[in-house]
Amino acid sequence: MKTFELAGSPRTDLGKKATKALRKESSIPAVLYGGEESKDAIHFTVTNSDVRKLIYTPEIFLVNLTIDGKEYNAILKDIQFHPVSDEILHLDFLHVFENKPIVIDVPVVLDGLAEGVKAGGKLSLDLRKLKVRALYKDVPEKVHINIEHLALGKSIQVGELSFEGLELLNASNSVVCRVQLTRAARGLAAKSGK
């Protein structure tokens, strides 16, 4: 997993008024959850320009977070956007430890050319990310799925997949990808069937 360096400033004023003032200064309020004790939560702020490359990317990062001189390993858990302006309103980070598993969405990459596509079908990726539980050191940047043997009209479901060190949390009957029949493929099948 790639790493991302981020520095935050601690904050003590937590009310609406203080939060509004922070946002006017183009700072984003953020919280780090999951400390040594379950009720630990560290409130801090980051600047919009600092988190831009962390948020607007399909990749996942382990964030080396520095707040008031202390360093934490974390992952970005949740982002709240303004419903109209799409401005970032709030960030939630999760403190990660080497011996505790985390739950994170990992991007899916399809490898190879499916047999069904060669026969005139259309490849459809239904799940762009898979939800996995694993130790953060075992989480890959992307999950690769080989689709070379995927025939026309067939699909790959979550239950058919397994990866070393990863527990898949999506429903086992969720379709990850499929090769759909097109009109041209149906026409060819009808002509060859006669």
Rank of each mutant, 00 (worst) to 15 (best):
I60R: 05
S38A: 14
K77A: 12
T182A: 07
E148F: 00
S38T: 11
G153S: 09
T57Q: 04
L6G: 02
L123V: 03
F93I: 02
K70G: 12
K122R: 10
A30V: 00
S26V: 08
A134Q: 06
L65A: 06
I156D: 08
L110K: 04
P10W: 08
K129R: 14
L125T: 07
A41H: 00
Q80A: 03
T45S: 14
S155N: 15
K16A: 14
H144V: 09
I102R: 01
K194H: 06
P29Q: 01
I67A: 06
V158H: 13
L161D: 12
T12A: 14
L161H: 14
E59S: 11
V51K: 03
I28T: 02
R133F: 02
T47I: 08
G159Y: 09
G112R: 04
Y72M: 04
I60A: 08
G69Y: 06
D105F: 03
V175S: 00
K2Y: 01
I55R: 10
F93E: 03
D138T: 03
A18N: 01
A134L: 08
L135P: 04
I156E: 02
I75K: 05
K2V: 00
E164G: 00
V51E: 11
V143T: 11
I67R: 01
L113M: 15
I88L: 10
H95N: 13
L150G: 04
P58R: 09
H90E: 09
F81K: 12
V51F: 11
R186Q: 15
L166H: 05
V46G: 09
V117Y: 05
F93G: 04
F4M: 12
Y56S: 10
T47G: 07
T45A: 11
S192E: 15
V108H: 00
A21G: 02
A151I: 03
S9H: 02
D92Y: 07
P10H: 08
T3H: 15
Q157C: 15
E37K: 15
F44V: 03
E87P: 01
D138F: 01
L123F: 05
E167A: 09
V46F: 03
A171M: 13
V176N: 05
V179F: 04
P107M: 04
G193P: 11
V108D: 00
I147N: 05
P29N: 06
P29Y: 11
L125N: 12
E160A: 14
I79A: 07
H144C: 09
A41T: 11
V108N: 12
K70D: 10
G159V: 13
T3E: 15
S49A: 15
V158T: 11
K100M: 02
Y56I: 02
T19W: 13
I28R: 01
I104S: 05
V96P: 02
S174E: 14
D40F: 06
D40E: 12
I67L: 12
D86I: 00
L135T: 09
G153Y: 02
L181D: 05
K24G: 00
S172M: 10
H90L: 14
V51G: 04
Y56Q: 06
D138A: 06
A171Q: 03
D68M: 01
Y56H: 14
L62V: 13
G159H: 11
S124C: 09
L76G: 01
L6Q: 02
T19H: 06
N99S: 10
A119D: 13
